[in-house]
């Protein structure tokens, strides 16, 4: 099968079960969202797929290949990238340098010592295109730590996209972003390449309903249900367990 295929995935920390028998598919071009209350195991799931955590059981296949035994860096090379829930960038490097690093590494040039890092024309053009795509032009040569948080989230997405992944996991892309800037994030997600498979883990329901065509609901480490935004919005158990929670 093309894309990501997860079967019977589990993760235990001692006696604590954080993921239990999860089946999950993500095909090329998919726009899926993973929602669930705090502690449902959403980030754990993302970390299992990207290789930060090792599963206790189950299989993870990518384009038919079993990738459960590969470490994070190897999975990145296969085409699975993620953004961090808490912004994780290179703060004192400029936006351009932040994007240069992943492109150089993707091209396998990161160990070169006797060429200038910014001397490759094709790579610099690609970085410029990414900067345009995320409307970061005026900030391109500023250190990332000078940027507003919403803008840093955009750099984070641009940085992951610079790896030319085939699967992109966005771990709470709007977390910490003021609601007035959420639309920037939504627009950026909508402009992601069509064929890229995207999984969004998010609390912001506006964002989820805007960008996802399919929503998976995770509760206490298990999949409660999966469906279209309409189905999820009208699902009584989801409303009760998750959406209704806001009203006490």
């Amino acid at each position: 099968m093309q894309g990501l295929e997860v079967r019977g995935l589990s993760k235990h920390f001692g006696g604590l079960v954080v993921s239990e028998n999860i089946d999950f598919d993500l095909k090329p071009g998919a726009r899926k969202a993973l929602i669930g209350p705090n502690g449902a195991g959403k980030s754990t799931f993302a970390n299992l797929v990207t290789g930060i955590l090792t599963p206790s059981g189950g299989t993870i296949r990518f384009d038919g290949e079993d990738i459960a035994g590969l470490d994070e860096a190897q999975r990145v090379k296969r085409g699975i990238a993620k953004t961090f829930q808490i912004t994780t960038l290179f703060p004192r490097l400029t936006v351009r340098e932040n994007l240069r690093l992943p492109v150089l590494e993707r091209e396998g040039l990161g160990r070169r010592m006797f060429a200038r890092a910014d001397s490759n024309r094709a790579i610099e053009d690609e970085i410029a295109a990414l900067i345009d795509q995320f409307d970061l032009g005026p900030l391109a040569d500023r250190p990332v730590l000078d940027l507003a948080y919403g803008q840093q989230r955009l750099v984070e997405m641009a940085l992951s996209l610079a790896l030319k992944p085939r699967v992109l996991i966005l771990d709470e892309p709007a977390a910490g972003v003021p609601s007035s800037e959420t639309h920037l994030i939504i627009e950026a997600i909508e402009r992601l390449p069509r064929e890229l498979a995207v999984l969004v883990i998010e609390h912001d329901m506006d964002l989820v309903f805007r960008v996802a065509t399919s929503i998976v609901v995770l509760v206490q480490g298990r999949i409660l249900t999966e469906g279209t935004p309409q189905e999820i919005a009208t699902n009584a158990r989801v409303r009760e367990l998750y959406l209704g929670g806001a009203h006490g």
Binding site: A73, L89, F90, L93, L101, L104, E105, R111, M113, L163
Partner: peptide, 27 residues
């Protein structure tokens, strides 16, 4: 020369954020 090279940049990247360097596929 090394400081301005891709290798030098990657060292500064590691200094700034090892977690992010792993996430872009670097050992």
């Amino acid at each position: 020369v090394i400081g301005r090279s891709p290798f030098g940049l990657s060292l500064r990247g590691i200094h700034e954020s090892p977690a992010r360097m792993e996430a872009i596929g670097v050992s």
